[in-house]
Amino acid sequence: MAETAGATASDGTPRRDFLTLVTTAFVGVGVGAVAWPFIASMQPARDVLALASTDVDLAPVAEGQAITVMWRGKPIFVRNRTAKEIEEARAVPMSQLKDPQADQTRVQKDNWLVMIGICTHLGCVPLGQKATDTKGPYDGWFCPCHGSAYDTSGRIRQGPAPRNLEIPPYAFTSDTKIRIG
């Protein structure tokens, strides 16, 4: 009895197979649909996505100085570059860059460099913001974790990081103020 009962019926086998198939398909769709809300709930919530933008006053930052501000829980490097640094950054031929990007495309005003201060390798914060920090062989930033070196435009020049430091969305709200985000 146990052997015959489950697998086959004397007649109508095709219909039952089709029926079972459709039902199984429905169950599959249902289980998939149930999984989705759980996964989605782990994505950033709406209040997180709507997090405030950050206003930064640039007036106190003298030429050659840098400040670090917080935006979306990340450090943002804001540097008032010297003419020498700008010149260095623009003199580099594209062919020497691992992630070729012209310095002009990375800034809105020549002297103000605004970047997300997170190494594109594995997420450490590079050194180079403080005057006493080591700036690495390219006079920009140097990540102490695995030795990635960035130049005065925040571009990757040496080490394991694959990309240049990222530029956040920002806009100048006046000559000396920016809003990030």
């Binding site: 989705w36 809300p37 759980f38 989605a40 709930s41 994505q43 919530a45 709406r46 209040d47 997180v48």
Partner: peptide, 10 residues
């Protein structure tokens, strides 16, 4: 209930 995706459902 308000901000988490499908939070109200869960």
């Amino acid at each position: 209930m308000r901000d988490v995706n499908f939070g109200w459902l869960i």
